[in-house]
Amino acid sequence: MKIVVDMDLCADHGQCVYAAPDVFQLDDNGKLVYKAEADESQRDLVEEAADVCPMQAISIED
C-alpha cells in the first residue's frame, strides 16, 4: 500500500501519529515523518489516520 502526504497541506497536527504510529511519526522538531510504503496489515490504521487528519493531507494509493 502506497501512502502520500501532501506536505504543502500537512500542518503537523500529529493526529495521524495516534492512529497509525508505525507509519506516521513526529520528529524532535514536531515535523511529520512517514513511511511511503506500508504493509497491507496496516491498511485499517492508515485509513483511520487519513480520516482524522485535520488538513485531509493523507491519501492512500493502492
Partner: peptide, 11 residues
Amino acid sequence: VGLMPSLMKLR
C-alpha cells in the same frame, strides 16, 4: 502552544 512532545506525553 508549541511543546507538542510534552502535550503528546500528557495525552
